[in-house]
Design a protein around this nucleic acid. Sequence first.
RNA 1: GCGGGCGUGGCGGAAUGGUAGACGCCGGGGACUUAAAAUCCCCUGAGCUUUGCUCGUGCGGGUUCGAGUCCCGCCGCCCGUACCA
Length: 865
Amino acid sequence: MTETGSESSGGDERGRFGSAVAPADRFDPQKADLRWQRAWADAGTFTADSDSPKPKSYILEMFPYPSGRIHIGHVRNYTMGDVLARYQKMRGFEVLHPMGWDAFGMPAENAAMEKGVHPGGWTRQNIAQMKAQLQRIGFALDWTREFATCDPEYYGHEQALFADLYEAGLVYRKESTVNWDPVDMTVLANEQVIDGRGWRSGAEVEKRKLNQWFLKITDFADDLLEGLGKLEDWPEKVRLMQENWIGKSQGLEFSFDLSDGGKLPVYTTRPDTIFGASFCAIAADHPIAQGLAGDAQVAAFIEACKRGGTKAAEVETAEKLGYRTAITAKHPFTGEPLPLFIANFVLMEYGTGAVMGVPGHDQRDFEFATKYELPIMRVVATDPARADDPFKGEAEAGAQGDGGVIVNSDFLDGMTVEDAKQAVITRAESEGWGEGRTVWRLRDWGVSRQRYWGTPIPFIHCDTCGVVPVPKDQLPVVLPEDVTFDIPGNPLERHPTWKHVDCPKCGSAARRETDTLDTFVDSSWYFLRFASQPADRPFDPAEVAKWLPVQHYIGGVEHAILHLLYARFWTRALAHIGKITVQEPFAALFTQGMVTHETYSRTDEARGVPVFFSPEEVDRTSGGATLIADHGVVEVGRVIKMSKSKKNVVDPDAIIARHGADAVRWFMLSDSPPERDLPWSDAGIEGCARFVQRLWRLFNQIQPAAIGYDKPLARKAHQAIVAVAQDIEALGFNKAVARIYELTAAAEKSEPSLDRNFAIRTILHLIAPMMPHIAEEAHARIGTGDLIADELWPDHDPAMLVDDEVTIAIQHMGKLRDTVTAPKGASKDALEALALASANLQRSVDGAAIRKIIVVPDRLVNIVT
RNA sequence: GCGGGCGUGGCGGAAUGGUAGACGCCGGGGACUUAAAAUCCCCUGAGCUUUGCUCGUGCGGGUUCGAGUCCCGCCGCCCGUACCA
């Protein structure tokens, strides 16, 4: 029992930081926050030492795009990472917790167009502002490793890596489709296409082909897929999404003989339904379609297919259109002539750009067949007896597992879907007209962007030598500063001198590549640059090996596929060419939810559109919602993601100025589970600010002269040490917060004792990763005198974790009838006897014969009658 | 369209198949105060014939002694959909 009171008496010790702090009734975050932020910076508390003998831990949050100001969503993201980083440090790890800037991208160019500023200047200014904001929240970041992807030192190394991948054959050029704005004469991002029109010009967008740079991510498709299986600490949903995105499928590729003497190779994942085929369809940009374009009608149809943007959601929800050619395709088994269509829903990128249409068992084909009055045949049924059942207005997938059986299909009749697939493939292969083939949904990564504010692609186009990489000693290819954005299009393209260079090979006049790299390339290796930053190389492989993989990677679920897949690919590609040894960059991934807020609006009668008001303009104190300006009622809208257009954003600066960093951090961790959305509320943040003061009062109640013990409280403290640690490790911050509230309440209510002092000091350490400023301030007064950020997580006594009494639920037929207290570990017989003795239970049973008694030790007894 | 997720009091949420609603917010009552703020204490899912009982985890079924949790079928909302980052 004595060990529970084994905390040091500690009251009048004053260490390095102790004398600086005067006792106060209230905790003053405005003074304390800055004091401790300076103390950490001066002491280099969070500077990672790669030569430390301690085990390493790399904690990383997805670095921000410097859009202007820190968003409350950033605060949530970085608070979670910060708690982990500080906790890991308390657990004895050498922690790397860096921060940088994903600084290239379209918003900077938009700002340049709208405000006439330079994208670089605008970006740098935003970075300075956002860095100051992050520092004001007290994040335990190693700022010595900060960089921005728009630093030539960073993108120069990226250019070198890109050239290395080119040399290794992982980079190539090919034609691909972009959104083209025919009025602004420029390429549009999908985001810039709204309802099929350019966002500035309002012109109807067209698809246009352009020669572009690609990375061979498909070479790694199998490996990326297989690697998912080993990522145990990734959310199941993200692994599933990536798996579906990669989309490995086994199917049959075979050729139809065409009536014009040609052949039509098609790919299908459902060869079992081949007897249900009633037409064939090819993409508008399929060679056969192009060959028919001499006909004006065909040309017009192909032209019509070009309308609209390239978004998958748009393409696939568009009305299905087909053009029936004069050509027919001969069915390989029946010899039937099937009509050949050009169709807007067939994609040239997937398979062979041609499909066999099986309307009965594919929904798209069903709609198409209905529209063009093609036969819809049943070849899969739940039962052979139902081979001629009609369809109920939609296709029946008849997938495996549904117990489907093949019907109306000659030699396949009676087989399962799976067996029939194999049978058709076997037959096609033995007869030589087709073969089994694995096809991936994943496409190669197009990295060309026709924009200024990105990493210049380090290549030169020479009429004699073709595509020539810029020699390594001429890197970085730096963006020119003197550019203008007053007209649409890529300023690099129209810059007077920048693109005119001599060919590095033959010396004749040549042109610099004016495309820049997708910003996803920048974010595909930044975590390696954080680990080590030599001037002459992108990274030092030995240093990378020390820190990687990232132990916890935290960011929004919106990155579940693209960013995370590209980063996994880039890391593998670098390993493939021998630059690093690590294959998977992120050992554990956590995807956090958004911060949301309700909206306030009124309908503008004249225009019939809602006008939104910001939270500061609205008074919500009286239960309703009124506009402060005119006291009129405003409508309270759904709780949605914060966005400028809905004016439902809250500014972290204003909140920190009011309540301090710790209250904001605590709010970010409280209530909502971190993977779910967090609704912002003023009442919530005020509650957190109150709790900060409540803790402050408690911390001042350490009594150096206290004597005696309080075993129940000590037990709670020991249990909390273990539980909070487990919760933090599982990123269950909301649960950790709840446990701290419970222990705090218990400590407040208890009488002074050695154990109470212990409980208070325990709380101080448990909150240290979450509310580091008040923790330092209190620790300076009641702790060892050193920084609490440098202290270790408290030890616990295993003997104190178990209660000696438990509450047993007594049920009749699964319904609660009574509860009793029993010693922990009581025997089944004893529990049974206790249950049967319950008057409430007896009344419920009412003399009925007992058929069964279920006893769950330390939990419940259920009487079954 | 396709892929993925989520749905529990007035609100955010908790709950290895085992006492649904821990903890926080809001609200109500009380203490302290000349008063207010701050603080502290108590109550707070709905209903009823209130020693206790019934209902209740988006909707409809099912498995089980026992289902928020597992299975089947729906509904709603959110995220991604390859040039937003």
